[in-house]
């Protein structure tokens, strides 16, 4: 043969995912540096704390959402669950229940809502988009019925205080991100359950014929997503000191956007825990910076949209060249 043995491409999937994460971190740092130069108000302790608080809720939603998207599904209900959870936790606390018990009940309720989604998908054969769209509207309705359209004020000072305090100089709400993200990372990247999630998203029939219980994984994914939303609901209730069913409007789209910016593929089987986290904080930083710079909030939406297109486009290019 006249041709030399062709060298094999040694670039690997993991390197790519690592590089992509690095690029995202780079982008986040770049935005922060630019904002620090553009406005003296950005790099202040107060503002950074505020930014972390803002970003942490979408970040947790995005982690849960990512589990679902990896199975090639979608969870549109997370925003509504946030609003509904604020009502439930506020109502329970105001009825005199101990705060820890109220929180536990709220989280279990979130888990059950997720199981209901999985039931609709597995047993009733509904598409994920439809079943979660249905709970999106119904949950808001149920929440409004329960409160008669009004707001429940939470009078428990310790509960409200939690969201404003910091631990080791970092806001408590951001600690919540770490408390959720670390087990989520272990679950998705280091345990067999994570592998099964990818398998289900890639090819459910092949997963099934390899002994993976596909229904069980669907229950786990939607259960975790809804429970993450309930956690965020509790955090939001603490931050605002109220329960109101209309809270968290449109947050599901921000969660999906964060997840996608973080490299998750809506076709399933591609995604990570760290990607969506960074994605959420990129969105939060842009919104924070735009506020500081007095950019019209209408522009913020346009910028966010454009950013989604650009980042996902580059991600597609990267995949295609593989």
């Amino acid at each position: 043969m006249t041709t030399e043995i062709t060298p094999t491409t040694t670039k690997t999937r993991r390197n790519f995912s690592f590089l992509f994460a690095l690029t995202l971190v780079g982008l986040l740092v770049l935005i922060c540096v630019a904002l620090s130069i553009a406005t003296p108000n950005f790099a202040t302790g107060n503002n950074i704390s505020n930014l972390l608080r803002q970003g942490s809720m979408i970040a947790i939603l995005a982690i849960g959402q990512t589990f679902v998207i990896i199975t090639a599904g979608i969870d549109l209900s997370v925003g509504a669950i946030v609003g509904f959870s604020t009502v439930v936790v506020a109502g329970l606390i105001q009825s005199g229940m101990p705060v820890y018990l109220a929180i536990i009940i709220t989280l279990i309720m979130g888990l059950l809502i997720g199981f209901f989604h999985a039931f609709g998908i597995v047993k009733m054969g509904l598409p994920p988009f439809i079943i979660t769209l249905a709970t999106l509207t119904s949950l808001r309705g149920i929440g409004l019925l329960m409160t008669n359209g009004s707001t429940i004020n939470i009078t428990d000072a310790s509960f409200n205080q939690f969201s404003r305090e910091s631990f080791l100089g970092v806001p408590n709400l951001f600690w919540m991100v770490i408390i959720v993200a670390v087990p989520a990372f272990v679950f998705l990247h280091l345990s067999k359950w994570g592998r099964y999630l990818y398998a289900v998203g890639s090819n459910p029939e092949a997963a099934r014929l390899s002994g993976v219980s596909v229904p069980k994984m669907i229950y786990i994914a939607y259960g975790l997503s809804a429970m993450c939303a309930a956690i965020v609901g509790v955090m939001l209730a603490a931050r605002l000191g109220v329960g109101n069913a209309t809270q968290g409007e449109g947050w599901e789209l921000q969660a999906i956007a964060s997840s996608v910016i973080g490299g998750t593929s809506l076709f399933g089987a591609v995604g990570s825990v760290h990607g969506p986290l960074i994605g959420a904080f990129i969105l939060a930083t842009i919104s924070n910076g735009a506020n500081l710079l007095n950019v019209n909030s209408f522009w913020q939406r346009i910028i966010t949209g454009a950013l989604i297109i650009i980042i996902v486009f580059f991600d597609q290019l990267r995949r295609r060249n593989r």
Binding site: Y198, A199, S202, E205, A206, A207, A269, V270
Partner: peptide
């Protein structure tokens, strides 16, 4: 393709 492999995984 349909039953044996998770094609877009390693």
């Amino acid at each position: 393709r349909d039953q044996g492999l998770n094609l877009n995984l390693p």
